[in-house]
Design a protein around this nucleic acid. Structure first.
Lengths: 106, 106
DNA sequence: TAGATAATTAGCTAATCATCTAATTGTTGT
DNA sequence: ACAACAATTAGATGATTAGCTAATTATCTA
């Protein structure tokens, strides 16, 4: 869980996740959105991978990254729980609630 | 907002926030919960202060820190919004919702 | 097979960070 | 005024981090 927070602490990495929210992208495509060098981006990808926030799929000579939304959600859930913040995750087809010692129904 | 995430990226600081969730505490009292030196804790407090996550009240020779729940909530809201995660904050007397481009009522 | 392309790894540097001890500031009580 | 106490600031150190260029690996295609 610490790795997730560490990964999220960098603005570049947060923006990578944001980009991946829309659709999976290759490493090069992602790198094109930033001014830093490709090897630097590669390092950012590695941090995100190790935190489990993204997964890499190799197709031929390109590597496509996609967001692991569940890991992001779990981190958010865990964090909210610790701070007693009611959270409802809209996973697309259902809601899951977490947090709040006294569950106030809405 | 970057300062908030940076502040949250350290486990010690996250635990400080957790402790302050229950009740305000003095710097010394907080430091008592950790094995690191008081100056180190003081530095952690400064990071949390600069992120706006805690506020300091000086009473005589002691300084009492308290959690700025609203800042924490706003950070969580902003983050959730960016990732399209529906969030409901239980602020004690009302709920506030954020996130989700398509608002599914529950 | 050679050249081009996508991405990573290697190796380095400058900056930031968590930590420590020692010194300083400000407040209280005798 | 002075000693004790709470906390911070000063200054130093070792570790981590974000960034770069150059080199490497793996794949595709002419």
């Amino acid at each position: 869980m610490n790795k997730v927070f560490k990964a999220l602490s960098d603005p570049t990495r947060r923006r990578v996740l944001q980009l991946l929210r829309q659709r999976p992208m290759t490493a090069g495509e992602l790198a094109g959105h930033f001014t830093v060098s490709k090897p630097t981006m590669s390092a950012h990808f590695a941090v995100l991978r190790e935190a489990g926030l993204v997964s890499a799929d190799k197709q031929g000579k390109t590597i496509t990254y996609h967001l692991n939304m569940s890991v992001l959600e779990e981190a958010l859930m865990g964090f909210a729980q610790v701070f007693g913040v009611e959270i409802k995750l809209d996973t697309g087809d259902s809601f899951v609630a977490a947090g709040g010692t006294t569950t106030k129904d809405v």
